[in-house]
């Protein structure tokens, strides 16, 4: 035993030929410490779903052309509104903060009902409103508003862009017919990215 103590004392540095359980356990322990010791870092590496979706919303503005009558003036803001529950928190507001696209500064608005929705270019209809999609969409018909949601039957209901999660990645589906009906021209590049609507 006395002898073993001496060995371990030396083994700290040089004595590897004896792979004993205590050491393996130590490595594992060390791994756990890393795993739980830095939770913030894990969140840093991958943005949250709604952060991504907020960025997507912002990016959609770049690839969609609105008819001139959709804006009050050449420099009037492009309003991105949310109808229903705001799942983004303030992520969306951060994403569009101080951004100007095609001379139109971006603005965030929270709408509570479809009736309120005016002077709005992009409207994210929250999943909380999934049961009233047809009504909402019907109310918006005739208005050049790009409608976006995250529900399975939004496209069949006549929505334009629907977020889906594929392979743990945020993807989207586009209903170009609906967009064209609303007078919106979606860039073919964007169309290329879209997942086929099922």
């Amino acid at each position: 035993m006395r002898l073993g103590k001496e060995c371990s004392a030396i083994g700290e540095k040089i004595s590897l030929p004896d792979p004993r359980p205590p050491r393996r356990a130590a490595i594992l322990l060390l791994g756990c410490l890393f795993a739980f010791g830095s939770p913030t870092r894990g969140q840093d590496t991958g943005p949250t779903e709604y952060q991504i979706k907020a960025a997507f919303l912002y990016n959609f503005v770049k690839f969609v052309d609105w008819p001139t009558q959709a804006y009050a003036g050449p420099t009037s803001p492009t309003v991105i509104g949310i109808l229903g529950e705001n799942m983004f928190g303030n992520n969306l507001e951060q994403a569009i903060h101080n951004k100007v696209i095609h001379h139109h500064p971006l603005q965030f608005k929270q709408f509570d009902s479809a009736a309120e929705v005016t002077n709005c270019q992009v409207l994210f209809i929250s999943a909380s409103e999934r049961n009233r999609f047809p009504q909402i969409l019907a109310a918006l018909r005739g208005k050049s508003i790009l409608t976006v949601s995250e529900s399975g039957h939004f496209i069949p209901d006549g929505g334009m862009i629907n977020f889906i999660i594929v392979d743990r990645k945020v993807r989207f589906q586009i209903n170009n017919r609906a967009a064209r009906q609303a007078g919106l021209i979606i860039s073919s590049d964007l169309l290329n990215l879209a997942m086929p609507a099922g």
Partner: peptide
């Protein structure tokens, strides 16, 4: 560059 704007914007590697 033009063609890849969207792909980059939406981080679509495959495209």
């Amino acid at each position: 560059g033009d063609r890849s704007e969207a792909a980059l914007s939406f981080k679509d590697q495959a495209v």
